[in-house]
């Protein structure tokens, strides 16, 4: 078996095995459907309510992508700004690091208070949670730019802006993508938490409503769709990372 095939086939077989075990246990021990529906029940709920679930998935996906995009812009912008001013960096960087040590989920009710119960608060929460890994990754990327490259720029009379744009920024892209991968999964978490607290629609809302009506199969169906959405977002970022690595000649 080739290595590539093995890397795909083994995890797939393991996951299928777990699903089979789950199915077998439900059949053998007759758990009530409210406690643990069988995978086939979840599939039935999913196919029967595909329209509703998709309808709810769209706002969740939209807010996730918007929050992720905004966090990316802000993270890169702040890290770049701090790269230019030592004073600003000394003042701001430690504070940002401390804030990011606080569990960020704990802040979410504050955003509802400040931004209301509409999409702005959901966007703000997703952005807030996704911002930190991007910012930190970008900072370490800019910091770890090869010193000899910076010296080369200086020897060729490059301006700080030119050095930043042509060397530091491209040199930090592999670091940035490591942060983006973490951030995109966090953005999904942020949106779901925001929807749990207050939202008219979304997969988070669907999960809460289904829980209230003891529709466990619907909860699991919604979670399955969330998994697929999360994986798709992660996959896109991963493809971007591969492209950047190829660009760097790896």
């Amino acid at each position: 078996m080739s290595e590539r095939l093995r890397d795909l086939a083994l995890p797939a077989a393991f996951a299928a095995g777990l699903l089979l075990l789950w199915q077998a246990m439900v059949l053998a021990f007759h758990y009530p459907k409210v406690i643990l529906p069988a995978p086939t029940d979840v599939w039935l709920a999913l196919s029967a309510n595909a329209g509703v679930i998709w309808q709810q998935a769209v706002p969740t996906l939209r807010d996730t992508l918007a929050g992720f995009a905004l966090a990316t812009v802000l993270g890169i912008a702040l890290a770049s700004l701090l790269c230019f001013s030592r004073t600003l960096r000394a003042a701001v960087y430690p504070l940002v690091v401390v804030i990011q040590l606080v569990p960020k989920i704990a802040w979410t009710p504050l955003f509802i208070v400040w931004a209301g119960i509409g999409w702005p608060s959901r966007l703000a929460i997703a952005t807030f949670i996704a911002f930190f890994p991007i910012f930190i990754a970008m900072m370490s990327g800019l910091d770890s730019t090869d010193r000899s490259l910076v010296r080369l720029c200086r020897s060729m009379t490059a301006t700080p802006w030119r050095t930043f744009w042509s060397v530091r920024l491209p040199a930090s892209t592999p670091f940035l993508f490591a942060g983006l991968k973490v951030a995109v999964t966090l953005a999904v978490i942020g949106v779901i938490v925001a929807e749990f607290i207050s939202a008219p629609e979304g997969l988070g809302v669907l999960i809460l409503k289904s829980a209230a009506q003891l529709q466990t199969d619907m909860i699991l169906a919604a979670i399955a769709v969330l998994c697929v959405l999360g994986l798709a977002c992660y996959g896109v970022v991963h493809l971007g990372e591969l492209a950047v690595r190829r660009w760097h000649g790896e």
Partner: peptide, 30 residues
């Protein structure tokens, strides 16, 4: 700008092709 310099390491930009690395001298000098 009227000085050319070579370091112990080639110090090339890994994401640029050979020719673009050569031309980087001009890019750096705007």
């Amino acid at each position: 700008p009227e000085i050319g310099i070579m370091f112990q390491d080639p110090t090339l930009l890994p994401w640029k092709s050979a020719i673009d690395n050569v031309l980087f001298a001009f890019q750096a000098m705007n």
